[in-house]
């Protein structure tokens, strides 16, 4: 456990050392200042667009950090031959995968937390605000999203080049979030062999659309029912663990 956290903390330090996050935070801050200073026909307290754009940008920046950090964790160790030093330590390959995943997860989560905190402050300063429970749900679901994203990217990084894995991660994310409704409706309307194949595909893909409650947040809809909220958390944990186990199987017998 100690070794796993040592690897994870190392990754986290890398984020703050490399200063990528500062750029994102400054950009995010400038964007919010620009958004809240806009004047639309002299009407006061227009705020939903700030929530909308702000939350989208916070997620997008965190997504970029999650994917770009996850895909280079193991390949960079291989490239610089530091993986030999790591594997020479009393550390199993599964622990290595978990450590690298936790590093990416802590990194993207800390970036998301910082951006989300800034978002929450601006939302409460300007306009109608948000119900605290809805804000808490969107934060926790954001963390779950980071977990699934990091595990998907880690798995892909074992079979593709760094840039290929990153590109594929982004394609999967945007493809699923944009076309999930169509996919679900197609599946429900289909029959026979198409339905069986569709179901297999549907169960295999990461359901990123579960984490998108932006519309509820922006338009102050009711929070997600507790059962559904808990089911999404359980789904995230199971999906993350399964992908990490597959990643472990991917490097179990690999000769570096």
């Amino acid at each position: 456990m100690k070794q796993i956290f040592a690897i994870a903390i190392n990754c986290l330090k890398e984020l703050w050392r490399k200063k990528d996050i500062y750029t994102f935070l400054v950009l995010f801050f400038i964007l919010f200042i620009f958004l809240i200073s806009e004047n639309f026909f002299g009407i006061r307290d227009i705020s939903r667009y700030t929530k909308d754009i702000g939350f989208t940008i916070a997620l997008l920046f965190s997504l970029i950090i999650a994917v770009t950090f996850s895909v280079k964790q193991i390949p960079s160790e291989v490239e610089f031959k530091t993986i030999y030093a790591l594997l020479a330590k009393p550390l199993t390959r599964f622990q290595l995968i978990i450590g690298k995943f936790l590093g990416s997860f802590f990194t993207s989560s800390s970036a998301f937390s910082a951006l989300f905190a800034l978002f929450a402050i601006f939302v409460y300063i300007k306009g109608e605000g948000v119900a605290p429970i809805l804000l808490a749900q969107s934060y926790i679901l954001g963390l779950c999203l980071m977990s699934v994203l990091c595990s998907v990217s880690t798995l892909l990084s074992l079979f593709f080049t760094t840039s290929g894995a990153a590109t594929l991660s982004f394609i999967i994310y945007f493809g699923i979030t944009w076309f999930s409704d169509m996919l679900r409706n197609t599946l429900l309307d289909s029959g026979g062999i198409t339905k069986i194949l569709g179901l297999i595909f549907y169960y295999l893909i990461p359901h990123y659309e579960f984490y998108d409650i932006k519309i509820r947040l922006v338009h102050s809809w009711e929070p997600l029912p507790t059962t559904i909220f808990l089911l999404i958390i359980v789904y995230s944990l199971v999906y993350t663990y399964t992908l990490l186990f597959l990643s472990y199987l991917g490097i179990k017998r690999r000769v570096f």
Partner: peptide, 28 residues
């Protein structure tokens, strides 16, 4: 299909129009 069920539940379930001055929100 538990996943399709969650996906349905996450999606919005009511159709409501902006009213009582809330229409200002679409101006930006």
């Amino acid at each position: 299909n538990i996943l399709a069920f969650i996906s349905e539940e996450v999606a919005l379930s009511e159709h409501m129009h902006l009213h009582g001055g809330e229409e200002k929100e679409l101006l930006p």
